[in-house]
């Protein structure tokens, strides 16, 4: 299993702060498609992702047990 962690407004869009889902073997890009289509997350394209608190690229592959965080950059100031 994997744990997904949603920050800020993504939490509201996903309806939960965390989600348990098995996505091991998939890439971050594939996971983005899944959460966008199945969990209603929008603008997921420009959201930063981290695997186990380390910055992740779209082609990084998720391992069993990994926690993936979705962190949307914002522009307000």
């Amino acid at each position: 299993m994997n744990k997904l962690l949603f920050f800020a407004h993504l939490k509201d869009e996903a309806g939960a702060e965390t989600l348990s889902i098995d996505v091991s073997g998939k890439t971050i890009a594939e996971l983005k498609t899944i959460v966008s289509e199945q969990h209603g997350l929008t603008k997921i394209d420009s959201v930063m992702t981290a695997i186990n608190e380390e910055f992740a690229e779209d082609d990084d592959i998720i391992q069993q047990g990994d926690t993936i965080a979705f962190i949307p950059p914002v522009s307000g100031g």
């Binding site: 920050f7 981290a50 380390e54 962190i71």
Partner: peptide, 19 residues
């Protein structure tokens, strides 16, 4: 990279060296 949500009680630090 530090991000937080004070109302949601979230705080995280993402290591970015490999970026």
């Amino acid at each position: 990279f530090t991000s937080f949500d004070l109302w949601g009680n979230q705080y995280t630090n993402i290591k970015i060296a490999k970026a």
